[in-house]
């Protein structure tokens, strides 16, 4: 298998992502690690709560990986995403791409996170000191 997709309520294990993506054929590995930031527009963020429509989210993540394989000469793609409650500094998403040459790995990794944020049915609720907000829900 050259694709690994995971939605998990458990802490993402970054080292095991890297171990999986490594191969003797690779000349470069690009890893994107998303982290929970402590503020949004100057307001202190306490925590984030992620919710997913799981079967569709898995299906959309597989589609993005398939598109990346079509567009770039990459060897392996890993997309892991969290669900549930995350504190500041925790990791909601890990994307790893391996390729023979670095340009393809960089470009595909960037593409995967950008499209994931547009199409994969996952939602986050930000908790502030004065209440909770579903991100991007309202104009």
């Amino acid at each position: 298998m050259n694709t690994q997709i995971l939605l998990s309520a458990q802490t993402l294990d970054i080292q095991s992502c890297i171990d999986w993506i490594m191969s003797p054929e690779s000349g470069g590995i690009d890893v994107f690690i998303g982290t929970v930031r402590n503020a949004t527009k100057g307001k202190k963020v306490l925590k984030l709560d992620f919710e997913a429509y799981e079967p569709m989210a898995i299906s959309e993540m597989n589609k993005i990986a398939a598109q990346a394989f079509e567009r770039w000469p990459v060897q392996k793609i890993l997309i892991h995403h969290r669900t549930g409650l995350l504190q500041v500094g925790e990791v909601p998403v890990v994307i790893a791409v391996s390729a023979a040459h670095r340009d393809a790995a960089f470009d595909a990794c960037r593409y995967i996170i950008d499209i994931l944020k547009q199409t994969v049915p996952i939602w986050k609720k930000e908790s502030f000191e004065d209440g909770d907000v579903w991100v991007a829900a309202h104009p």
């Binding site: 992620f50 429509y53 049915p121």
Partner: peptide, 10 residues
């Protein structure tokens, strides 16, 4: 059938 509000993963 599912209703999909604006997504905000990542």
């Amino acid at each position: 059938i599912a209703i999909i509000p604006p997504v905000s993963g990542g």
